[in-house]
Design a protein around this nucleic acid. Structure first.
Lengths: 189, 189
DNA sequence: GTAAATTTACCGACTGGTTGGTATAGTAAT
DNA sequence: ATTACTATACCAACCAGTCGGTAAATTTAC
């Protein structure tokens, strides 16, 4: 599974040969196909595992969540920046990579990636909506969540071969600053 | 070339078969290989063409550029939002797609995509830097350009199968609003 | 309690289809 | 004579998926 995650991310779906996955995982083709009925299923499982790891590491980076919704959002933004330095994201985001390249060729894989992205977006939306409610500011939380997710995924795309993800950190930091401005002053559009 | 652009974008590099490109372009393989010595060269040419079209359509959407650097930046942001509704970007951005999936397998293709992205980033950086200089605000224009590019590419990634690119529009609109706040008030970090 | 039966987990050679690229002979226009 | 192809055939490499087999673990039967 770890080998599958790494190769799918590094080479893309089509170029990630199952023979290579087997070789790096020290398993044989027979063993692989005993557990997964097809390459698509393997990729879908890798995507779910990747998302699970993201959520886990995100929770770790959050620590004890503050009760105040706005404080919780600021803390979450810091956690995201921390996550961007984690080895898990040093080669990009598997969700974005699969969502980008598989929809026309392997809809089942794309569906798994989009499900995870939608779930992530729902979490962001709720965090932002709660903070806005608490501050008495009215905003479209979904649109702001789109902006934040775009900053993360777009930044990671631009940082494809840089393990420290400087553009993603810049994009998320700036968007976080915008969220602060918007939610603390009600200067939203 | 048009067929190559479309298939590379829709299916990804590996899954875009040259036979299919030839079929949709109504050309034979011999004809294709007369002009391009390899699939990598074809992809690189498609990337350059795509970037050229982006620049052209961007210029069209800008219209007559205002002399005031800040006004020019606001106008550019509007042009980007217009561009996001153009058929050229309705299926995503070829630069981002190729930069994401080819670096490990076809470095020459990735290099072409990254060159175009760097050029685009340089344009954005200069636009932002000029506006900031004019307003007497000191900012890291490169970081802000990263944020804007991330909003565009990340938004397009999230909107992979939606031809109207709502998330990208939201992300760019919000980041544009942030730029206005930052550059008009000097509230930047 | 143990032998037999069955299931689980895995191996690795093989297959059939696909793909990038080549080769060749010919054509029509410049 | 060169350029810009078409049409057809072909090839070696690759790759997802299969299949017959096997060894250990687990269950069943007595």
């Amino acid at each position: 599974m770890e080998a599958a995650q790494r190769l799918l991310l590094e080479r893309g779906y089509e170029a990630a040969a199952l023979d290579d996955v087997c070789a790096t995982a020290q398993v044989t083709k027979g063993g692989l196909f005993y557990h997964f009925e097809s390459k698509e299923r393997l990729a879908a499982a890798a995507i779910e595992r990747f998302y699970g790891q993201l959520v886990d590491k995100g929770r770790d980076a959050m620590g004890a969540a503050p009760a105040d919704p706005a404080q919780r959002l600021w803390r979450y933004l810091d956690a995201v920046v921390t996550l961007l330095g984690d080895p898990l994201l040093s080669r990009g985001c598997l969700l974005g990579a699969m969502a980008l390249q598989t929809p026309k060729t392997h809809p089942a894989v794309a569906a798994a990636a989009q499900t995870a992205l939608r779930e992530w977006r729902a979490i962001l939306t709720e965090l932002i909506a709660a903070a806005a409610r608490h501050r008495g500011v009215s905003v479209d939380a979904g649109q702001l969540a789109d902006g934040l997710l775009a900053a993360i995924e777009g930044g990671l795309l631009l940082d494809r071969d840089k393990p420290t993800n400087p553009a993603a950190v810049a994009a998320v930091t700036h968007f976080g600053h915008y969220l602060r401005l918007t939610l603390t002053q009600g200067a939203a559009r």
